[in-house]
């Protein structure tokens, strides 16, 4: 009887979980099924679409790499050092996850718009945030950087301190220890954080919309097609972009997984 009841519980869990899975899969599957190969190839050869895909991929990649320069060291500090207000800093890192992304865009405009010090600095350097690639990257970075910092921090925290101590004991400088011991051993988590941040950046819409409607990234293009021409015209671009995102995501996951095997 107990066994039966146990199985019953698991069955109910499985049914409930199945509903959640269905909730994710059904809309995507529906969207994919409603698009004909003809629509897709037409969409793929649309220069506006391909340009937007390129812009999206490269700006999100750029945002990720630029932010990594500061995020990875910050993650190490958060994992290794105790300092006042550390918990506050951990909280601040998570802020972009909880605030509405349109609000994030508005907030960003406050520091990067033309009249602001940052805006003026950019102007002197010959580029503009608002309505430019830099603005898109800033918006993407703002909303996606928590994923990198958190993942890298967990990775560094999992590196045995003793290995860093041993390296110092062998006469290595802290910088060398960071690059030869800490980063390689936390690499899996850092890479996974980079992938997550990139993926999150690619899919960002709200903050980018506020900061830079043009040059158009694909999520904005999808929104525009939907607003101007309706569901039928928005679908092929959506399917194309989702497919590209999935391909990148899966490829990178596989590469990251291989590295893991090689390491252990």
């Amino acid at each position: 009887m107990r066994i039966f009841r146990g199985e019953m519980t698991h069955l109910v869990f499985a049914a409930l979980g199945g509903l959640v899975l269905l909730f994710i899969i059904a809309p995507l599957a529906g969207m994919f099924l409603s698009v004909t190969p003809g629509d897709l190839s037409e969409s793929a050869s649309d220069p506006e679409v391909s340009r937007s895909v390129r812009v999206t991929l490269f700006t999100s990649m750029g945002a990720t790499l630029i932010m990594a320069l500061g995020s990875v060291p910050l993650a190490w500090l958060l994992a290794r050092k105790d300092f006042p207000l550390k918990q506050l800093i951990n909280g601040i890192i998570d802020l972009p996850i909880v605030i509405p992304h349109s609000a994030a865009g508005i907030a960003l405009l406050g520091v990067i718009a033309r009249g602001t010090p940052m805006g003026r600095l950019a102007e002197k350097a010959g580029f503009e945030f608002v309505g430019g690639y830099a603005g898109i990257m800033a918006a993407m970075a703002f909303v996606s950087v928590p994923f990198l910092v958190n993942s890298a921090r967990d990775g560094f925290a999992a590196v045995p301190r003793q290995l860093e101590k041993a390296a110092l004991n062998l006469g290595a400088s802290p910088v060398r220890v960071f690059f030869t011991i800490s980063v390689p051993l936390a690499w899996r988590s850092i890479l996974s954080g980079l992938i997550l941040m990139w993926a999150r950046g690619m899919s960002e819409f709200g903050a980018v919309l506020v900061v830079a409607y043009h040059p158009m990234i694909t999520p904005v293009l999808i929104y525009e097609r939907f607003g101007a021409f309706g569901l039928k015209y928005a679908r092929p671009v959506s399917v194309l972009f989702v497919t590209i995102c999935l391909l990148f995501f899966i490829t990178l996951r596989v590469i990251a997984g291989r590295r893991r095997d090689a390491q252990s």
């Binding site: 045995p160 041993a166 390296a167 110092l168 004991n169 062998l170 006469g171 011991i181 390491q263």
Partner: peptide
């Protein structure tokens, strides 16, 4: 640490994996 000239072999060796 790196300037001391004192070498330490840890109990669990702490080899870089």
């Amino acid at each position: 640490v790196q300037k001391r000239g004192i070498g330490l072999v840890f109990q669990d060796q702490a080899l870089f994996p």
